[in-house]
Amino acid sequence: MKLNHMLSTKDFSRKQIDSILSLAEKFEPVALREKRCNILDGKILSLLFFEPSTRTKMSFETAMLRLGGKVIDMGSIETSSVMKGESLADTVRVVSSYADSIVLRHPKEGAAFMASEFSTVPIINAGDGAGHHPTQTLLDLHTIRRESKLDGLTITLAGDLKYGRTVHSLCYALSHYNARINLASPPELVLPDRIIQDLKNRGIKVTKFDTLENAVKDSDVLYMTRIQRERFPDPAEYNKVSKEMRVTLKLLENCKPDMKVMHPLPRVDEIEPEVDKTPHACYFKQAFYGIPVRMAVLVMAMEEKYGKVL
């Protein structure tokens, strides 16, 4: 039987993405506690997190519980068989006999794909190293769809575009929607050339900007990411870069009045707290949208008749 794994959005068609987002929208009243739904009653979701996570893990748990299902958690790796040297393949084989689906976060790229080869239940990738984090991409797309527009979007991607897997996946997904992509990042953290080339091959207009100010002028969405201090051996250089790549009230004076600011969170210094009160701030809503999107993903993974829900 073919399992509905969720490993990456890279090879998703627009039709597949749209159907997940439509289902997510139907689940919003459940996520908001306005409506009850027990579609996953009797199902068990297993969480295998080999790396720390707050939002992703809790939002998967919330999504499962609100749909009537139950959650089992491997807990920290210090207390698991992993410490005894068990392979991921064996862990997945065993846990897939306990649960109806597995959410996996692992530090190695390709871990979720490998897990799907050993599992007898659907694997949902919750991040594999610098690789994929498909539910983050889907919730980003859902946020854009609900708070701005997906078709013909102009988006500025800013911050760490070199190592940030969320922006990489988002770029590929946006290529289905004829987006224009503006890039603003420190020279050390530019989007890899192979991704820019892939996007251009898909007919996407990609423009590099020297400053965040110039990039956001015509944007519908500013997608900000965190620049990690450890990327810069020189603290002075980090301070300079983080100051330049900061969303401030002054920056927002020159952008479109309905431009939305998104961020995968956690943020550190890249968005000043005063921005939270403006209509541009969209990052907390974005975090909320993680619930309905993950509900849709869980239902698609575990419920064959998901088309008939709600």
Partner: peptide, 10 residues
């Protein structure tokens, strides 16, 4: 950092 460069049976 690829999973194939670890001690997995693949």
């Amino acid at each position: 950092n690829c999973i194939t460069n670890s001690k997995e049976p693949i």
